[in-house]
Amino acid sequence: MIVGAVTLFAILPAYEIWIHKKGRDTYLPLHLFKNIRFQSAAWNTGIAAGVYYGFSIVFPQIVSIIYYGRGEISEYDIGTLAGLAPMSFVFAQMCHGPIVWFTGPKWAMIGSAVVGVACLTACAADIDNRQLTMGLLIVGCYAMGIVESVSITTSTFPLRSQEEIGQGGGLSGSTRNFVSAISLAIYTATLNNRLNQTVPAQINSVALGLGLPASSLDALAAAVRGSASYDAVAGLTPAIQEAIQEPFRIAFRDAAKTVFFVSLAFSGSALILSFFTTENDESTADYVAAGMHGKSEEKAYHDEKVADTGSK
Rank of each mutant, 00 (worst) to 15 (best):
K106R: 14
Y187F: 15
V147F: 02
D126K: 02
Y187P: 00
Q167H: 11
S183A: 14
A122C: 10
A118R: 02
L84N: 03
L120D: 01
S112F: 00
V100C: 09
A85Y: 03
G135N: 04
K106N: 02
I165S: 15
T133Q: 01
Q167S: 14
R160F: 15
V139A: 11
A118L: 08
A185G: 05
G168K: 04
I186V: 07
G83R: 07
W107Y: 03
M94Q: 08
T103L: 15
E164I: 04
R176E: 05
A181D: 06
G116N: 06
A125Q: 04
E163S: 13
G166D: 07
G145N: 01
A122D: 01
V114R: 00
L132A: 05
I127E: 01
Y187W: 13
T188Q: 14
R160W: 13
V100T: 12
I127L: 05
I182E: 00
T153V: 12
I99M: 13
V115I: 13
G173Y: 06
M144Q: 01
M87C: 10
L136P: 05
L132W: 05
Q131S: 11
L184T: 08
L136A: 07
C119A: 08
S149V: 04
L132R: 02
V179C: 04
R130L: 10
F102S: 13
Q162T: 12
V115P: 12
Q162N: 13
I152H: 09
T103E: 09
D126I: 03
G104Y: 05
G145M: 03
C95L: 15
A125M: 09
G79K: 07
S155V: 08
V150N: 02
R160K: 14
E163T: 11
L81H: 00
H96V: 15
I165D: 07
E164H: 10
P158L: 12
D128R: 05
T175C: 05
G140D: 03
S112T: 09
E163N: 14
I99K: 06
S155T: 12
F157H: 11
A108C: 14
